[in-house]
């Protein structure tokens, strides 16, 4: 990570815990999380906002952290896959992924879960079409998507 230029102090909460780190304000939020805060659960896939592997929530809104400046985390609530489960219990969505085969190589999985969890929070009864539309910014090369759709449908049923 950049150790030169005008650094700034970013204060935010990540998965409920306060964080404070110095970095360049234009470092991407993804680089901030991974290389400054040392939180590697969020993955890099493309660095162009195309694949969704780096999806996080910012005050509850899903964004691709590779195209968000670290400066925009200032004072915000950041959510990653690490905040989805309790220490010893997977969330309903994570359990559904495990049962339905929603994860294979696992590299797109953190982004899938973050994006999918946001959809579940909307509380509507999910349909395959709704899932395919909402999740279309998250690329997966292993599953062919069907088992992720099934995972979300199952989690949606569990939660109702």
């Amino acid at each position: 990570m950049s150790e030169e230029g005008e650094l700034t102090t970013i204060r935010c909460t990540i998965d409920g815990r306060p964080h404070e780190h110095r970095c360049h304000p234009l470092a991407s939020a993804l680089d901030f999380l991974r290389y400054v805060a040392g939180l590697t659960a969020t993955k890099e896939g493309c660095k162009e906002g195309e694949c969704g592997a780096c999806a996080i929530t910012l005050d509850g809104v899903v964004v691709n952290s590779c195209v968000v400046p670290a400066a925009h985390l200032q004072g915000r609530r950041v959510g990653t896959v690490e905040g989805l489960s309790r220490p010893d219990e997977l969330s309903a969505l994570q359990k559904a992924f495990l049962e339905c085969g929603g994860a294979q190589c696992g590299i797109c999985t953190p982004g899938m879960l973050v994006t999918g969890a946001r959809l579940l929070e909307e509380g509507e009864r999910l349909t395959e079409a709704r899932i395919r539309e909402h999740m279309a910014g998250n690329l997966c090369r292993c599953t062919g998507y069907g088992k992720i759709v099934e995972s979300l449908l199952r989690a949606s049923e569990e939660e109702r």
């Binding site: 906002g49 969704g52 999806a55 809104v61 899903v62 964004v63 691709n64 195209v67 968000v68 994006t115 909402h134 999740m135 279309a136 910014g137 998250n138």
Partner: peptide, 9 residues
């Protein structure tokens, strides 16, 4: 445009 995460930003 893009998908949800891009539409949000």
């Amino acid at each position: 445009v893009g998908a949800v995460a891009i539409q949000n930003r």
